[in-house]
């Protein structure tokens, strides 16, 4: 019950498809997830997994996509909401932080104007003076050293880290309940990354917001997430809390992914390589386990015909039954050769 009260977002059976020539292809396929107050839900996956398409679906930012299913947020179903109503919620109740701080700001507007716009859009009555004061306060909050000076600067005058702080200031300007961070530190240096992640964590605690953190970096996930959802080829393949997922990963994809990162703690001579490549949107397997062709040594009967999410222990979900029969091949040379073609 407590969980339900704290639930901010409930995505249920969401499918987002794009039209390519005369057919629709689902980039997000039948995905369900919940986000709770003051938690970080990390969505992990490689390019082509659909993680960014999912974030854009929740924000309603797809301009040409077909969406089916439901996204319940603040008592509304975003899938069927009019654009005008979504505009009222976007930037106010839910906000987004983007991957590339170099391109996400308008090059012709000052920093002050860009943050001020976010305030003005959701509070038409705001006076110029109080808008200015609020922008300065936001700039202070995200750790800009000279807010009054930065207010009049243009994006190209700021470093990447500072620009990302400005983008965060825009996102939190109306204290949203839900914050989606799409690869917020991928374009930044490690030391700046650590600072930005710290900032996001602090702001989350302060605003009690729910955060969806989209990333491919398992280190960032280990440090930030409360719960993790792993996506592969448009589907969720495993959902669990952070400790469970790192200590007891079950899905073959999750296990492979964790093994392919150079691990600073244990010494390994060779990294694990997943055979084959992520299928493109048009070539997704339409039936059966989508990961099957990348673990060909697992027998066909190990997979489900219509793979479902199974709750294997409380709050730990895994798709398909193949995880029970999966183990790594120990022939490194072999997997090297196969990993290529």
């Amino acid at each position: 019950m407590i969980l339900l009260i704290n639930q901010i977002l409930n995505v249920s059976n969401l499918t987002t498809s794009f039209r390519i020539k005369d057919d629709y292809y689902a980039a997000v396929d039948n995905v369900s997830l919940q986000v709770f107050k003051n938690e970080v839900l990390a969505i992990v996956g490689e390019s082509g997994s659909g993680k960014s398409a999912l974030a854009f679906s929740i924000m309603g930012l797809h301009t040409r996509a077909k969406m089916e299913g439901n996204i319940y947020f603040k008592g509304e179903d975003l899938v069927n909401l009019s654009p005008a109503k979504i505009n009222k919620m976007r930037g106010k109740d839910m906000a987004m932080i983007f991957q590339d701080p170099l391109t996400a700001l308008n090059p012709l507007m000052t920093i002050g104007e860009q943050i001020g716009e976010a305030l003005l859009l959701h509070n038409k009555a705001i006076t110029k003076k109080s808008r200015y004061e609020q922008v300065i306060k936001l700039l202070q909050l995200v750790g800009i050293a000279r807010p009054k000076y930065t207010y009049n600067q243009f994006p190209h005058e700021l470093s990447g880290g500072m620009r990302q702080r400005v983008i965060i200031a825009i996102a939190i300007s109306n204290s949203p309940e839900l914050l989606i961070a799409d690869e917020p530190t991928t374009a930044l240096d490690v030391t700046i990354q650590a600072q930005i992640l710290d900032l996001i964590r602090e702001l989350k605690n302060e605003m009690q917001a729910g955060i969806i953190l989209i990333t491919h970096d398992l280190g960032v996930v280990a440090e930030m997430a409360d719960r993790i959802a792993v996506m592969y080829a448009g589907e969720m393949v495993e959902v669990a809390d952070v400790h469970t997922l790192f200590e007891n990963p079950l899905h073959p994809y999750t296990r492979s992914l964790l093994n392919s990162v150079p691990n600073s703690k244990q010494k390994q001579d060779r990294l694990h390589v997943i055979q084959g490549v992520v299928p493109s949107l048009q070539n997704l397997p339409r039936t059966g386990c989508r990961f099957a062709h990348r673990i060909p040594w697992v027998t066909e009967t190990a997979h489900e015909k219509m793979p479902q999410m199974h709750e294997v222990e409380p709050q730990h979900y895994v798709r398909c039954t193949c995880y029970k029969h999966f183990d790594f091949l120990e022939k490194n040379k072999e997997d090297h050769k196969h990993g290529i073609s």
Binding site: R90, T103, L121, I170
Partner: peptide, 14 residues
């Protein structure tokens, strides 16, 4: 451009 997405995400109307 990316900053157009930023503007939409702020809640700016079309």
């Amino acid at each position: 451009k990316d900053f157009i997405i930023t503007a939409r995400a702020k809640g700016a109307s079309e």
